[in-house]
Design a protein around this nucleic acid. Structure first.
Lengths: 200, 200
DNA sequence: CTGTTCACATGACAAATGTCATAAAAAAGT
DNA sequence: ACTTTTTTATGACATTTGTCATGTGAACAG
């Protein structure tokens, strides 16, 4: 019997996924968490075989959660179940030590199979997504990502400079370099592209 | 036996929701659609009692779908199941004639109850969301919304002007008026706010 | 210790954005 | 037919964004 913990911030989806997995006679959903912190706690008390988790959750993301479990040398294997077919997310997921990465637009019957494979120690990742991840590396430096993130929220260059303790001209330079790297005409295009690619 | 059609672009969530609803002995999921067009076709052939649909789907949104069913004088009642707690979406949903509006962060057991109530001709809407909808009207005109939508994709004022067959100065005037209405300092802030409020 | 690289800064300039006053044409109301 | 309202446009100006050349200081390599 494979013991599963589910983490997903949308309660409706959480309950539905639990119903789906509990249809399988060899799978048992032992806990449901609505956020990363709750999931971390439940992993430590219930010690499930597999954690199935979304990425975007309040407080702690699924990627943070995976990294934490790895740091704690937990035996629980992590299967990411997310909306985002973004190579940047997959790369970060692998770096965080996850064992599987499944998209929510995959057929529902793949979930149970993926959970079984992950429980056996196999890695479950869509091959096309894996290929895109390595052929589409994040071209932005850490500073560029910080600045683009802030620019995408509507902060002015001056406000970004104050936030990051840089000169306003430095921010303009970094942004200009970022636009060139992403082949974007302005910060709006750059931000959307980077978001879409999972680089932010 | 209440016959249900599900529409949701994420196959995993679609299958999970079907599993959840099929646990109830008085509910029967007679079809699953991955997009609005497919859902519309299935509604006409399967003639379900209730359509449970997301809003954001490729091709035709759940709101467009509801409006189409209304125009066709279909007997199928529509229950929206969405991520967005945005008053603007709820208002548009009611205008489109939907019978229920449920958020995906509601508990899973509320879905079956909501489907039953909608099937009985009752309206199912979170009261707090309803209140927010009417106390937070969309301040933007149709033209302002068109222009802000395009600005949010990174188009320049000149490009927006060409797209909408206006003068570039006219676009600047409309955008300036929009920023004033939303108390935003620039188009990025305005776009994010309007998106968050469901006004776009 | 010296040379190179990287992160950050300065300054000048062009282009784009945003503000505001004013006005013309079309649509709507009387 | 006339008046009012709405939509769109023009022009001037200020501010912000983006480009680019050049430079400084810290960190790193030899």
């Amino acid at each position: 019997m494979i013991r599963i913990l589910l983490a997903e911030d949308q309660a409706m989806v959480l309950g539905a996924l639990a119903a789906l997995l509990n249809l399988e006679t060899d799978l048992d959903v032992v806990g449901c968490a609505k956020n990363g912190n709750e999931a971390l706690q439940l992993c430590q008390t219930a010690n499930p075989d597999v954690l199935v988790t979304d990425i975007e959750m309040p407080g702690m993301t699924g990627l943070d959660l995976a990294a934490q479990l790895k740091a704690l040398k937990s035996k629980t294997r992590v299967l990411i179940l997310t909306t985002f077919a973004r190579p940047g997310f997959l790369r970060r997921a692998l770096e965080a030590g996850v064992n599987g990465y499944l998209l929510k637009d995959a057929p529902a019957d793949q979930l149970a199979d993926a959970v079984r494979r992950v429980a056996q120690g196999l890695r479950v990742i869509d091959p096309e997504l894996a290929l895109a991840a390595w052929s589409d590396p994040n071209p932005l430096s850490e500073r560029e990502r910080q600045i683009l993130n802030l620019a995408g929220t509507g902060l002015t260059n001056q406000e970004i400079a104050e936030t990051l303790h840089l000169a306003e001209g430095t921010v303009r330079n970094y942004l200009s370099e970022t636009l060139a790297k992403l082949d974007a005409r302005n910060r709006v295009e750059a931000y959307r592209l980077a978001k879409q690619k999972g680089w932010l």
